[in-house]
Structure formats: structure tokens, C-alpha cells
Design a binder for these strands. Structure first.
Lengths: 140, 140
DNA sequence: GTGCTAGTTCAAGTCGGCTTGATGTCAAGG
DNA sequence: CCTTGACATCAAGCCGACTTGAACTAGCAC
């Protein structure tokens, strides 16, 4: 007998924390492969939950669904897949590093702000020029 | 005689790297204060460029314009300003820390991917469960 | 005056990432 | 058999953050 993948879209939704509509949307844009259907209903293998976790993580790190699709398709594709992967990686890495830098800068602000007791923010060292990033405009 | 702030919107745009339309938009949503007008044209003090840099940095770190407005208004407001600031800070800090974590995880992926030589990604250690974040769903 | 450039307003459009609503189908439980 | 509930499709709507386009104006050069 043929194996029927065990998860309905509702179960995947519960386990992944994503809305069913989002899962259908991901399928529509080619981010998730079309699952097997049993009398019209989608049936998913367990590991789609992990794929959804990868998607969420990558997304939170600032990758677009388009870029994530490139990464994911690399893993099911044939040759040239790793090339695409490397291409995305190299394009996105500097952005990501910049993101992390910025985020840490702002984290510094917020941590200071969280324990700030200055009567007014004009007295507060938070907004001094020294704490702002230089505008180099090296990239885009 | 009255001091006329020295920068036109075009100059601010050039110096800040923002589009003039974006600057007008920031004003419209209350993110920037309404500048002085000289025969209808906006005239800005130099320090608006710094404010725009603050905005950009905060934005890149994942704050919304709404949240940034709260932060900025804190600096020109009266009392309760620092309270609002602290409130935003405390709400946003955990998110930011999570963002940084995620970003570093993905950076790891991308760095590995950039030097990946696996013939196919099924052989590639990149997508192993161990490298994925735990789904705790502690927050939201 | 006649342009030109840089500004102005306002409404509408765009894009990514989904959500919502209308309408329909199907299998299981009472 | 009938209802319920989870699923299906499809078009349209929404939100944030802007951009674009049309139509107009003010100041300067010639």
C-alpha cells in the first residue's frame, strides 16, 4: 500500500504556528512544493514543519520569501543548485552583517533607555552624535 | 533678523540619502516636525540630517516608524517622555535580541553556504535539524 | 516675457506578505 | 439523512512605507 503523508493542513498549521492561509500562500508562490492530495485535501509529510521553521527563521533574519525560495529550491534541485545558493549567500551576507550591527547599536540605545532616569532627553546621553553610525553610503 | 534654516528639502535629501518624498511623508505622519517655510518651501535646520540617520538606523534594526516616532517625540516632549521611551524600550528589547539571534543563525548558514562544495544539498550539513532553532513559542 | 529648475499638493499606485469573505465540497458522527 | 467542521478555490482587501503622476507655483537666467 502507498504511504499517505500524515499531516492535514490544520495539523501543520498547529505544529508550525503558521496560519493555514499562509501555508497555502507559500505553496502558491512556489515556496513549498505541492503536497499530495487525498480527495482534494492536502496531506503533508512531517518534515514540512521543519521547512516552515527554516522559512520563519530566515524571514526574521530579513530574507525575503523570494530569497528563501532560492535557498530552499537549492535543496531539492539538481546541479547549479549550490551555485544559486552560494550566489544568494554572497549577495545577502553583507546585508545581514550590516543588519546585525544596526540591531546591536539600537539594542544599546534601548538598553540605556530602559534604565534611563534623565529628567528630559536633552540631558540624556542617548542621542549624542557620537552614538550614531557614520554615513558612508558605501553600498546602495 | 531672523535666522532662516539653511537646507532645502533637496539638500536634505542629498545629505541624508532619503528621497524628498520620503521626507515629506515622515512629516505627514508626524515623524519629523513641520519645518519653517519660505514662500511655501520647506527650510530645514542642519540637524534634521542627523535625525534622519537615527530614523534609518532604528528602522534597519526593525523598529516601525510608529515606534521610532515614540522615541523621537520623547526627545522634544516634556515629562512622561522618558516613561514612554522606557516603555518602548522594554517592549522592543526582547524582539531585538531575538532578531539578532536569528540573524546570526542565518549568517552562519549563509557563510557555510558561501563556501559549500557539496554536490547536492542532501549531502550538505546545512539543513540538519540541529541547526534549526527550537520552537518554543514563548512569545506571541 | 519665456523657460528652467526645484519646489508644492493631493490622490492613487506599488510591493511584500498575508488575511478575509463568499461560496462550495466532502467524510464522519449522531 | 442531516449537520458539522475542516477543508477547498478565488478575488479582494489590508498594512506599512513609500513612490508616482498630474497639475500648479515661485524664483532666477536670459
Amino acid at each position: 500500500m502507498i504511504e499517505i503523508p500524515e499531516l492535514s493542513i490544520g495539523e501543520v498549521a498547529r505544529e508550525s504556528g503558521k496560519a493555514a492561509s499562509a501555508i497555502r500562500y507559500y505553496e502558491e508562490i512556489g515556496l513549498l512544493p505541492e503536497p499530495v492530495r487525498v480527495s482534494g485535501r492536502r496531506r503533508y509529510p512531517r518534515d514540512v514543519v521543519r521547512t516552515l521553521a527554516v522559512i520563519e527563521t530566515a524571514q526574521r533574519a530579513g530574507l525575503t520569501l523570494d530569497e528563501i525560495r532560492l535557498l530552499l529550491r537549492a535543496s531539492v534541485d539538481d546541479v547549479a543548485a549550490t551555485d544559486r545558493l552560494r550566489e544568494v549567500a554572497e549577495r545577502k551576507l553583507p546585508e545581514l552583517v550590516a543588519l546585525i550591527e544596526r540591531a546591536e547599536l539600537v539594542r544599546g540605545w534601548l538598553e540605556d533607555a530602559a534604565r534611563c532616569v534623565c529628567p528630559t532627553l536633552d540631558d540624556c546621553p542617548l542621542f549624542e552624535p557620537a552614538r550614531l553610525p557614520e554615513r558612508e553610503h558605501l553600498l546602495s
